[in-house]
């Protein structure tokens, strides 16, 4: 693993490898998604308790899973940046943050659309919903902090610090929300064990969404590397022009 991450440290090599990898991941995603949707809509029965509404679960659970996995990935990348100074770590963290926010938002949205028929209201201050909402706030904080800082190197390290602070407080936040929830209402337990007929579609959809995220993440990382190249080239061009007309510029400055 270490050797793989080390070999990937060269952005040019990463660009070559990701260009070769991206079509494969994309097609695998499409195939899994089609199969998963077939299972979710046609080949699985309605739940005896939730009725047809259970079909929302097949997209809600993958989104919720991604919302946590992506934060883990950002934390890991941040660690890679601050400790190992891996050159691609910040590219990975920066590319993942908006994707994570999007999937967390989708998890909240599909959760509340599932909650209306099940609970009779769009929003319940259920322990899990509340934790995901707080996770969404953490994503917003990461994105806002990065966009507020102009110096890209400083922005990378500061958002990495914030991501690590967030990930170390996340268990405490989760624990406190659970505590708070049991304090205020009897726990509404809808988490009966997953029926075997649901397990396969859930698994396939989760896999499809995970692959889809990795495809998006690779593409976003490629874009980010290109963006940095463009920026570097522009700076180089300006520097070259300055050297060319240095005497004129100096005269104007003095």
């Amino acid at each position: 693993m270490q050797t793989l991450t080390q070999r990937l440290a060269n952005p040019t090599r990463f660009m070559e490898l990701s260009a070769r990898l991206l079509p494969w991941i994309s097609w695998a995603t499409v195939i899994l998604l089609v199969y998963g949707l077939y299972l979710a809509f046609l080949a699985s029965p309605a739940d005896y308790q939730q009725g047809e509404t259970v079909r929302i679960m097949y997209i809600h659970v993958p989104c919720a899973w991604l919302s946590m996995m992506i934060y883990g990935l950002i934390a890991l990348s941040s660690f890679g940046l601050l400790v190992f100074r891996h050159p691609l770590a910040d590219v990975s963290a920066k590319a993942a943050a908006p994707l994570g926010a999007a999937f967390t938002f989708l998890a909240l949205l599909t959760g509340s659309l599932w909650g209306k028929p099940m609970w009779g209201t769009y929003w319940v201050w259920d322990a899990r919903l509340t934790s995901v909402l707080l996770l969404f706030f953490l994503y917003l904080g990461l994105i806002a902090l990065r966009s507020a800082l102009e110096d890209e190197g400083a922005a990378a390290k500061l958002t990495a610090v914030l991501a690590l602070v967030g990930v170390s407080l996340l268990p405490i936040i989760k624990f406190s929300v659970d505590w708070w929830n049991t304090l205020h209402q009897p726990s509404t337990d809808f988490t009966s064990t997953v029926d075997p007929s649901m397990r396969l579609p859930l698994l396939i959809m989760a896999l499809a969404f995970t692959l889809m995220f990795f495809a998006m993440h690779l593409k976003a990382m490629r874009n980010e590397i290109l963006r940095r190249r463009v920026k570097a080239l522009r700076a180089q061009a300006v520097a070259g022009r300055d050297r060319f007309g240095a005497s004129a510029a100096q005269g104007a400055a003095e």
């Binding site: 706030f137 507020a148 800082l149 407080l169 936040i173 624990f175 406190s176 929300v177 505590w179």
Partner: peptide, 29 residues
Amino acid sequence: LTMKTRRGGLLLALIVLPLYVPTLIFGIS
């Protein structure tokens, strides 16, 4: 974290308030 940012105040609130949740919950309970 927000020392150098210009619209620091609001950003600070957005970053810090979610982190205050455990303190709030256990302080009240």
